[in-house]
Simulated assay, not measured.
Amino acid sequence: MAVRETFTAEEWQAVGAAPFLVGLYLVGASPQGPMGVLTEMLAVEKTLTMEAHQPDGLPIVKEIEADLEAKVLTRDLGVIDGAADEQARVLGELARALALVEAQAPALDSAFRAWLFRVAEHVVRRAVESAPPGAGGTQLTRHEAAALQTLAGMLGVPQ
């Protein structure tokens, strides 16, 4: 049985959005303009694709990637401006996705959470690498570090 078959179509949309919600949360933590958003969301996509194409990759990630390619799932989750209410909305949607996986695919829950944190780390690395010269692009901003800490706590992974 495919992992996605344990979810309704609407629930699967929520679960499939999880890696992009992680990216959006980090984008909102330290907005870097349109190019920064693009760079960070492409980092999410790259991490998803890399995991999906690993022979031992997580089945849930492989199915998310396949459904993104088939346009069953969407990458478009709206725009985030870093406002506190938007950041809270993104975390709320992520919490819902995590609860769905925990309840309906418990065997994959901890691995999925750990993978989502790797997505977050990859996004932050790309943000640091792509920062314009002179913009402090050699280390995490305090906002990015705080966002990673928030995600680590939410995902239940050590940072």
Rank of each mutant, 00 (worst) to 15 (best):
V44F: 00
S30C: 07
Q54K: 15
T74A: 14
A103S: 12
V3T: 11
H122N: 14
E5H: 15
G78F: 12
T6R: 15
E45V: 09
T47P: 06
F20Y: 14
L58C: 14
L42S: 13
R96I: 10
Q13G: 15
V72D: 09
T138Y: 12
G78Y: 06
P133F: 09
D81V: 08
L148F: 00
A84G: 04
L148D: 00
P19Q: 01
M50Q: 15
R89K: 14
A70G: 05
A52F: 05
V79W: 14
L73P: 08
G36H: 00
V124D: 02
V123D: 03
G57A: 08
A131Q: 10
G57Y: 09
L155T: 02
A135E: 11
A152Y: 00
A135D: 06
V15I: 11
L100G: 06
E144K: 04
R142P: 07
L42P: 00
D67R: 06
W115F: 12
A18I: 00
E45Y: 08
A9Q: 15
L100Y: 02
Q159C: 07
L140C: 04
L148N: 01
V22Q: 03
A131N: 09
G136E: 04
S110V: 12
Q139D: 15
D67Q: 10
M154G: 05
L26I: 00
Q149S: 15
A83H: 12
R96A: 15
T141G: 07
R126M: 11
L58D: 12
A147V: 02
